[in-house]
Structure formats: C-alpha cells, structure tokens
Amino acid sequence: MKKVLSLLAALCSMLTLVSCSDGGRGGKDTSSHFVHQPANAVYHWKTVYNPNAFEKEFLKKHHIGRLYLKFFDVGVDNLYDGKGEQPVPIATTIFRDSIKHIGDVEVVPVVFITVEALRLDVPNYSLAERIIERVDAMCWANHIAYREVQLDCDWTRETKPLFFELCQEVRRLLHEKQKGLSATIRLHQLRDTLPDIDYGVLMLYNTESLVNPDVKNSILSSNVVKEYMRHVEADKHLDFAFPTYEWTLWFKDRKFMGILRPGQDTNVEGTLRHETSDFSEIIAAKHAIRPLLKDIGYPSSTIIYHLDSANLSRYTDHEISEIYRP
C-alpha cells in the first residue's frame, strides 16, 4: 500500500509540474512544454553584464541555477519618422563578458516595460512581436539558450488591461516556441488577478514609498508584507524575490531629494536615511508569506535581487543559504 501511495504522490507531483504551464485564469489554452523548475536564482539588473570574480563565485557557491538578466527597458521616443511617439527599447544591456563563463546557469531574459510604452496606442504595431524578436536577436548574438522570458512592469488598475493583453500575446508567441512567460508581481498587484503568465515572481522589496519621510525602511518591512498578506489570494505559482541592496535617501524639509551613492552622503544639507535589506527582515518576510503563497502547485524558488558584489559581500554565506533555504 505504501508503495502505491508513493507512486501516486510521485505521479501527482509530475502532473503538477507539467500543468503549471497554463495555470492562469482566463488565459488562452496555448499548449506548451514549458516547465518551470525550482532553483536558486538571482537577478542581474545592470546595463553592463560583466560579473566580477566575487559574483561568479557567488553563482557557484550558492548553486545558482537561474539568472534573471535584464535585457532592456521598453520606453517611449519620437524618432521623427512621421509616426510620432512609439515604443522603443532603451538601456539595453551590454555584454562585456560571455555568458558561457557562468557554466550551466539558465539565463532568463527580463524586459522592463514602462507604463508610458504600454499606454501608447500605435496602430498595426505588435509590441509583443518586437519584444520577442529582439530577445531572440540578443540571445542569438550572446549565445544564450533561453527557456522563458520575464516581463517586469509597474502596472496599476488603470494599465492592467494593457499589460494583461501584452502578456497574453507574448505568452502565445513564446508557447509556439515551447518557451514560457513569467512576470514580476508587486505586492500591491497581488490584490488583483494576475496576468496570463506561466508563473510570477513576487517582489518582496520596495515595500513602502521611498519618498515618504516618515517611512522607516522602504526597502523591506516584514510588517508591511504581513499587512499585504491579509488581502491576497494568489491562484498562480509564485517565486519570491528578496532584496540584498542598500541605499541612502536624502530628504530636505521632509521633501525627498534623491538617492545618494556611497560617498555622496557627505556635505549634504538635510536629513539622510540609510536603508538596508536586513537579514532578519528577509527571514521574517519569508515566514509571513509562507502560509499563504508558498509552493502553489509546486515548490517555490527564491531569487535574490541582485547580483552585486558590493551588496552581497555584506551577508555571510550562512545568511545567503538561509535566504535560499526552501
């Protein structure tokens, strides 16, 4: 009997993994062989890809299986070609080092979509096709064999239909290529239905407004995460992204003036607020989300934001392992 139960459990687990490719409500039934596998992951959010020794070692030491690499942003520009404003790729990442040098780490191209680009209503223009064609070209040029694309967008209730439509189209195109689509999900977006994606990545950072002078730590507050958790009900698989960065915010007369780089915080008139991604807060936030959102359909993964030696070096190996611990 035990054997039968084990077999059934294994079968259920396999079915779950396969079926996650179309777990969305209302999404078109676009069959795909895309399977999202659990893995330790990290974001690369710089405009130049050139990881240093520490960063490469980080990938190895912590068994990073997936690198979410921002390829480009989609902004808006007027090219003076008589077509007016149109969506254009900006801040394209320059590859100074070869992806080959990080071994078997899977690279997930990430495209950040500005809401201005979403709002543009350009006739006879498929933004989805443009994005996929450019991702293809970038992957081809840089020898990246990608399995999925991730879209990042700060959509709100107003722009939600536009983003959802884009996701639906991108996902359809990707499924035709046996690839998948994921999207970043901000905490406030969790209150809504989620777009037509294969899975989401819940961004557990920037939990509060950084321009608010009364906020203690805008990067991550487990209490704020708990508050959000009271109102959520996700029906799609989610992985979780935790911050490891820090910054100094400058306020003058309670007005936000800017983010200061290290070394810039001397001789500044006003108040400075140094914010860090505190390890205990990260763990507390993990525990806050666990009861409601973890392992929907199949095991959730953890992603660290982001691959930067200056920030990552502030954590011990043990702490990083704890963050990644399932």
Binding site: L79, V88, T92, E133, R134, A137, W140, A141
Partner: peptide, 10 residues
C-alpha cells in the same frame, strides 16, 4: 530601427 540588435550572421 531602434529595435534592431546587431547580430553577425543575421
């Protein structure tokens, strides 16, 4: 075209 990405052998 701003969407063009320079790829040799393309």
């Amino acid at each position: 075209d701003p969407w063009y990405y320079d790829v040799k052998d393309s």
